[in-house]
Write a protein that binds this DNA or RNA. Structure first.
Lengths: 339, 339
DNA sequence: GTGAGTTGTGGGAACGCTCCCACTCGCCAC
DNA sequence: GTGGCGAGTGGGAGCGTTCCCACAACTCAC
């Protein structure tokens, strides 16, 4: 609880050493306009000699800004560090923020065990805005933060939040996949869907149904299984599908990992891909290149998603009033060997 | 550049509403001692009604503390999100910090492109201390930060920094591995070493040599190859080893990923493991369980390493003077199927 | 009834900045 | 000369806290 003694030079000391006023020194540091060359040099030298670094707290106190943005990932370490999706989105967010001269602060919701610690951090104006990445939709964090006047942009849509989100157009992507399968003449198109408590799971399924309808195919319960986005669940689901006695000739998997699992199950069952069964995934993750044959899949760009999230957040901080309609990023099909 | 209008309630407003002084309100918030029940209730109610949240900048300005600690990872997103090592260490750090009521702030050095942005952030007392994870040793970041009086603990030792680091005892671990191979009667023990510009690479090699010496075996250049810690390089290195015409009967691989690659190469070459060639890895990464046969390896605990780093950092912030000798964490051998 | 504690309390001062206003120059036009 | 203007400058005020000191209001001996 004791306050550590101050040891670092203050702006006032810099000014004194440079023989100018505090105001002038401040102007030099903040790229100020009206400063004489002489004063600028004197201040710069004093800064170098003293090793002066501005105190962020003091600055934030008066400017009410920190130039930092938090990215909150509400997933377990395992998932965050397992799925390449996160690496991509962080790369996009990181570079977009760097361009805007904002510092990215990454917070793993799991890591802050103490209930409320995260809320506290985010609402106490440590950051100018919050980017939230949560794939589940039972999270009330965004509402709690917004209530304190902190701008939030959510990556991955929540059903009840109709604004300030960025998401991949899952419905359109899934439809694309099914249309492709139908275009190849497949008539008994199954799906290995994702969990129903994730938007990605639900809307890709929705797109699957829409795709079938568009191709004049009936929706058949026996052709639907739900996995949990893991490779193991894909394999298992495919096995289940095959054991139902319905002759499947096409499968749309809600992500690439499950598709990889499905391919394995199909190989074990002696089905040829794509001759007997055509398979399409979703994500265009790295694994899509290393399956055998390489996976035909719906391409999404996490990096672009990250950049869009930043753009929207910065826009919100500039014009506090404006709510954003939410932005859906288009996908496209990458045709490789499985369909 | 314009200052957003204030909208959030201040402590003064809370105090006014509660009918007490600013000091009393502050005492209630900070779990103060001498506050009457009546005052406490009044303040708590005012806080709830107003939705008051303390301003971190103002508090930090006077206390000179932020109760936040930065974890800087100086690696590419690919590596960070590829190696389970990082997930483990972050879990350890996260939970240790949470127990100490500190907020963990994760900074990816790669993500802040602008040269100096990271230095600035760390230096301007946004955080009370810095944990640095860099596997290469050409980094001068820790020195730059320390120069500004910010405590730093490095994970993974740097050769020239003889204090304030935590690392796995790589030498001891590698020695353990070689001793085990020698104990199995192996006489021509090769190594697939790691890169020479990483401490882990160098010291595991050092341990390999020490292990050979301890077992009265000669060091033979033809039994040494260097990989880059990737699975592909392990496979390639093993092939190179086999093509040298020296009959290898044991291999110590500097990490599990390379060991997995080596196993593949050995299988391709028709060598039986462990009968013809015994293999030991290092890390006890998840992949060690899924190789065939399961990998015998040196176990290290990234989670414990994270916790130790936090302990050391907190100790430094409490007693600013004390330098720490650096802490080496012991490893132990996990015997599975390959040796 | 006095003096010495023990609880609680209010508010001034300080933390290190940015913002802004008032001021001093020097220059030019008239 | 005088007035006006723009460039450059110094420093007061204020941001929202915590810390601490002075003080009020009790209680409890003696």
């Amino acid at each position: 609880m004791s306050r550590p003694p101050r040891t670092r030079p203050t702006l006032e000391e810099v000014a004194a050493r440079a023989g100018v006023g505090r105001g002038t020194a401040s102007r030099v540091i903040n790229g100020g306009e009206k400063v004489s060359e002489r004063a600028r040099l004197a201040v710069e030298q004093a800064i170098a000699e003293l090793g002066y670094v501005p105190n962020a707290a003091a600055r934030a106190l008066v400017t009410r800004r920190t130039d930092a943005v938090a990215l909150v990932i509400a997933e377990s370490e395992e998932r965050v560090f397992g799925e390449p999706f996160f690496a991509g989105i962080i790369r996009g967010i990181g570079s977009a923020l760097a361009e805007a001269d904002r510092q990215l602060i990454l917070l793993l919701a799991q890591a802050s065990q103490r209930r409320g610690a995260l809320d506290d951090y985010l609402t106490r104006q440590h950051v100018d805005g919050v980017l939230l990445l949560s794939l589940h939709d039972d999270d009330e964090l965004p509402d709690r933060i917004r209530a304190h006047g902190v701008p939030v942009v959510v990556g991955g849509r929540r059903d009840d939040a109709d604004s300030d989100f960025v998401d991949v157009d899952n419905v359109q992507g899934a439809q694309l996949a099914v249309a492709h399968l139908a275009g190849l003449g497949r008539r008994r198109i199954a799906t290995i869907a994702g969990p129903a408590d994730m938007v990605a799971g639900r809307s890709r399924f929705e797109g699957y149904v829409a795709g079938l309808v568009a191709a004049d195919l009936a929706v058949d319960d026996r052709l639907v299984v739900r996995g949990d986005f893991s490779q193991a669940s894909g394999e298992e689901s495919m096995r289940a599908l095959l054991s139902r006695g319905v002759e499947v000739d096409g499968v749309f998997c809600a992500n690439d990992l499950m598709a990889a699992g499905a391919l394995r199950a199909l190989a074990d069952a002696g089905r040829r891909v794509p001759e007997d069964v055509a398979v399409v995934g979703f994500e265009d993750a790295p694994i899509a290149l290393s399956t055998r044959p390489p996976l035909t899949t719906v391409h999404q760009s996490p990096e672009q998603m990250g950049r869009e999230m930043v753009a929207m957040l910065l826009d919100t901080t500039r014009t506090p009033g404006a709510a954003h309609p939410g932005r859906m990023l288009p996908t496209h099909l990458v045709i490789r060997g499985t369909a």
